[in-house]
Design a protein around this nucleic acid. Structure first.
Lengths: 155, 155
DNA sequence: ATCCATGCAAACCCTTTGCAGTCCA
DNA sequence: TGGACTGCAAAGGGTTTGCATGGAT
């Protein structure tokens, strides 16, 4: 699962890869019984084209030919199906981004805004242990890491 | 700092302690130049009385004699002064709770809703290292841990 | 042919703001 | 007394919904 998506997490030729990604997402939705419509594809394309976490408003702005309601409905559908996930910025603003399969921790650059993946880390085990010490049974967590990416640190 | 607050994090006699906590918070606000008014005290009392993370709406509901605007303004003031902090629930709902001085990680029970403290844990160091490995310089993070508290697990 | 999806506009919810009156310091 | 605080009501913005039309399967 998510095999095709996983292959496109890097930054190669934008056009063809993006198109394939869109097809992939549309395919996943079709498999779930959701129809393949033009407005839906436009929304998905716009989501894929976003270079950083975006708001619903930004998405609407980039899709002048699609009704707001459709943008919101599509976005909700993508979140429900885990194809898009929510990202919480340091200023507490809630944004969205394409789900990076298998990655649940986001490294967010406060300068340029890019979102990177926090490679596998042992934080979860540590948290589970700390929770257990407090008498809790941990079932999940939400973690966002804020800082500056390599490019911005160099400046 | 926060000495008085810290002493009341447990669950002892509710009434007198709560009153002292309210006085303490009002005192901190006074020290910052904010006046001691009845509506404000009522809001603070209501915040202190909440047994779990609450929404602004719930706070308004528990304060029928205080205008909504005042509730919202007071809540904003408490957040700005770090006396109240935001909590993100597993369902992505943003709520508020009295700040537990020195604790930035919340253990949230999905069954009864109580919020406990994740004792000191090494997660931050681990995260900082993992971020560095990805070329990031970590400056902060947001972490919420979800699960079931001891009481609920026993059931 | 069916019924999901769309678009528009109106409705909605939550939060903030303007303003006149009130009250703390 | 002066300036901060309050309450009301209205404005604001962001998101959802109702309904008739259009389109995918």
């Amino acid at each position: 699962m998510f095999a095709t998506l996983a292959k496109h997490s890097g930054h190669e030729h934008p056009r063809p890869r993006s198109a394939a990604l869109v097809d992939d997402i549309v395919g996943r939705l079709s498999a779930l019984g959701y129809r393949d419509t033009e407005p839906r594809r436009l929304v998905i394309s716009a989501v894929v084209a976003q270079g950083r976490p975006f708001t619903a408003e930004e998405l609407c702005a980039s899709l002048p030919c699609v009704g707001r309601a459709t943008v919101y409905r599509s976005l909700r559908l993508l979140v429900q199906t885990d194809l898009v996930c929510r990202v919480l910025l340091e200023d507490h603003e809630l944004r969205y981004q394409l789900t990076q399969p298998g990655r649940h921790h986001h490294l967010l650059c406060g300068i340029c805004g890019v979102s990177a993946d926090l490679g596998r880390c042992d934080a979860e085990d540590i948290l589970r242990e700390a929770a257990a010490a407090a008498g809790f049974r941990m079932t999940g967590h939400w973690l966002e890491v804020y800082g500056q990416c390599g490019d911005c640190v160099d400046d």
